[in-house]
Design a protein around this nucleic acid. Sequence first.
DNA 1: GGTCCGCATGTTAGCGGTAACACTCCCCCT
DNA 2: AGGGGGAGTGTTACCGCTAACATGCGGACC
Lengths: 364, 364
Amino acid sequence: MGEPEPEAEAGGPQRVRRRRATAGGGAVMADVARRAGVSGQTVSRVLNDHPRVRPETRERVRAAMRELGYRPTASARTLASGRSRTLGVISFDAARFGPAATLAGINEAAQEAGYLVSTIALTAADQAAVRGAVDRLLGQGADGIIAIAPQRSVGEALVEADHGRPMVTLDKSFGARFPVVAGDSTSGARQATEHLLRLGHRTVRHIAGPVGWIAAEARVDGWRAALKDAGAEAYEPLFGDWSADSGHDLGRRLAHDPDATAVFVSNDQMAVGVLRALHEAGRRVPEDVSVIGYDDIPEAAHLLPPLTTVRTDFTEIGRRCLSLMLDQLERTPEPGVRVTIPTELVLRKSCGHLLRGSARQAQG
Amino acid sequence: MGEPEPEAEAGGPQRVRRRRATAGGGAVMADVARRAGVSGQTVSRVLNDHPRVRPETRERVRAAMRELGYRPTASARTLASGRSRTLGVISFDAARFGPAATLAGINEAAQEAGYLVSTIALTAADQAAVRGAVDRLLGQGADGIIAIAPQRSVGEALVEADHGRPMVTLDKSFGARFPVVAGDSTSGARQATEHLLRLGHRTVRHIAGPVGWIAAEARVDGWRAALKDAGAEAYEPLFGDWSADSGHDLGRRLAHDPDATAVFVSNDQMAVGVLRALHEAGRRVPEDVSVIGYDDIPEAAHLLPPLTTVRTDFTEIGRRCLSLMLDQLERTPEPGVRVTIPTELVLRKSCGHLLRGSARQAQG
DNA sequence: GGTCCGCATGTTAGCGGTAACACTCCCCCT
DNA sequence: AGGGGGAGTGTTACCGCTAACATGCGGACC
């Protein structure tokens, strides 16, 4: 049955054939070359769509590849060429909607561009962890790194862990060192606040994201700016941790303050908690209190009441990250680009007019 | 200033030094070896924690690595050893909470085990896409593949795309071909249904996930089994697409049927839509209708009313996937293991007793 | 006191590709 | 007719690392 091993009985203790690095012991380039009657280099050229190959030869090589089920070995290509067609992504809080959706956008776009994505999900934002992640990704041969750096500390660690390869970051700018993509949090917060003010509320309270988070702070800024422009009083924001639990806790504090008639919440999850706290305290939304969230998670339209919120297109953010990365990788990079993804206020039913001290009439 | 290029002026047109494959032009093993005064092989041994190295030598090599900022080149290691310490993950619907949380669990556990994770997020469940993903992952040198295969068709495609490397799948079993991890959907659905029956409801309606999804069908089975055991009538389930939007649509249909006093919904997102539909139709939860969801998303506790639901520990699912993978990779694999992650009914406020034809008294 | 053995380390030959260069043809121009 | 040049292909030398084998050395053993 078994084929005779080539040179199986030649003199002396033969070196053991080393395990192949290919998956499933498949064919390698030399096998394809032999079968197609060409050199390895020609196979390589076919593989890389090099123009200088006669169509007929190309077809012969392709056929040989198909027949042998040939699959190029990425590590060998990477080693020889210095390019891996792999991108590294560092993410935080990957289970939350925003980051997860952004990640999905990056993945999708990467796939279309023929890149593979290696992800490292970090929990701690300390410098050592970030640096370690960058090291592992680069060691793995990543052609570039996309870092979701939602916290200031992460951004700083990233600058620390500097390296030669292209990089794109999300949310945090470092003096035009790397291109940055971000949702326009300041403007989104401003829109939300102005909408509430326009409805007649004397001022707008704010439940913010945690200190140190870029987006959270940008939203605080936008909110504060809108209040200032309108000459409205700015209460100190309450800081949550993005979770519905924290929204609920903080919402209870606001619920007991009869002066609080309008709340801008820094994300929809916390808004869910706020809505519940208000409901439990017997304050109706939007009749007594108006609430605006942020992000427009898919469930926002179905909350009770449907939540007015600021929509962020996370998928688009992810796609833009990727296109910026490709610019750096394959075209002439513009240094220090900053892409801002516009936001849109989505009017639903959680806001109402404030008329002579009492709130009425839903308006979105 | 510049060091003299070694052999820079030796005879004739020198070959151009090829670009290094290392990131940032860093040091390579030979540099470390030279600096430590040992051979490359010894450096390699230190790198791989080989025991046969004198502690003193080991320390010298480590110091040299540190001083040069040496970082091993993964592609070279992979090429030479056949192992990449990279795992491939194929996921679907990566922006939804369940898959995203599972992915996060996998990532976290992989990191602890020293593996890197490459993710391919698929949108279409067709065979070609799945096969392509497997090919790319293997070509990239993945040591094994974890496939989140929530749909029957994906599972079948996976069997089709068979290959030599270890594999772990999520949700779908293929006659004990690969180890499988899954939440215990059937039992979770049964618990939920039985709880509602125990509260006195004559029967329980079901809003199911889409046809073809393993978990959705398992929940239908569990629900049906519980009804059968109790001798309760089984209405045809309504099939949604997991989204709150579809839950809202389907919920409207139920809301107009006064006989519908208890609903088991196949995930929490759809339940959000159902809650809204019920509210809009003027049917109170839990007084008129009891609702149970599935998954226990972090917001479930803050819905109005707080949602009774079946908790699934997605992070644990992810971790178990990884440990099963490691078993195959590094230990003696048990073939065809099936790990089932238990579920737990979390009682909150969306269910109530049905007394003499009218519902009352919240009980979780 | 020589042999055997095991530890610590070095040497050699790849892993599977790609870059640079060399080499044929064959056509076109002068 | 001879030379230049480009298209198509082959040759060679690596990329950075590891497996297998080889070597040197000191101590235990008889």
